[in-house]
Design a protein around this nucleic acid. Structure first.
Lengths: 110, 110
DNA sequence: CGATTGTATACCCATATGGATATGCATTGG
DNA sequence: CCAATGCATATCCATATGGGTATACAATCG
């Protein structure tokens, strides 16, 4: 089998830098496709495709407004990623504490 | 251009479920490749490749111990992901508060 | 030193992109 | 009702996998 489909899960959807850019742009609020096209400097079809992937994992939702389609962020979709990575947080913090201990010991030796 | 190389950044490295499994396994401590092979139920060459990707983004470090190569987690490598996703946290929490408000209003109406 | 064990690499294959471009559709304006 | 505008899709192409299998290497053992 080849690489798992990008649309399969949020981790993959967000692994693509352009898609993170789109999400970042949407933190400012709802935006029509064209605005994202301008912001990202990508061709419109590409933006539409990235939006589709993001929609499929639930990271964005659409709303029709006349001729335009307004995309809005759905931040909850990112929670699984947060939960996963947050479970590692204490590890790098512990490590930081360890480093501090070592520095402390060194200071005391002098 | 095709999809960005997996080895390019931590987001891509971690987008692969098997690699997350490896990282999760390494939270228990240093492990030789063979142990990961058993744990994941993957062929040894695949595990070695995933480990290589993880090594290239700095998510794991290796240490030679006789014939074995012991892999250890380097949690700090995950911090960029944490930082990115954490910046969205207040968004879904706000939303949660909003929901709570609505529920509260509904209760008061009855 | 030859055999065994533990890993990393090299290839081969099918598949899933991401980007480019052309095109189909729906909504709005004249 | 026809043209223009805003998007979504369909194709085509090059590339990067991930999995399978064979193989090259290094270290250890007898």
């Amino acid at each position: 089998m080849a690489r798992a489909a990008t649309t399969a899960d949020t981790f993959n959807a967000v692994a693509e830098p352009r898609r993170r850019e789109i999400l970042d742009a949407l933190t400012q609020g709802e935006r029509p496709v064209n605005e994202l096209v301008t912001l990202l400097g990508l061709a419109q079809p590409h933006v539409s495709r990235h939006l589709r992937v993001l929609r499929e994992v639930g990271a964005v939702v659409v709303r029709d407004e006349g001729r335009q389609r307004l995309y809005r962020l759905n931040p909850q979709a990112l929670k699984p990623i947060y939960d996963w990575v947050a479970s590692y947080q204490h590890l790098w913090e512990e490590r930081f504490d360890l480093l501090e201990d070592v520095l402390e010991d060194l200071k005391e030796e002098h």
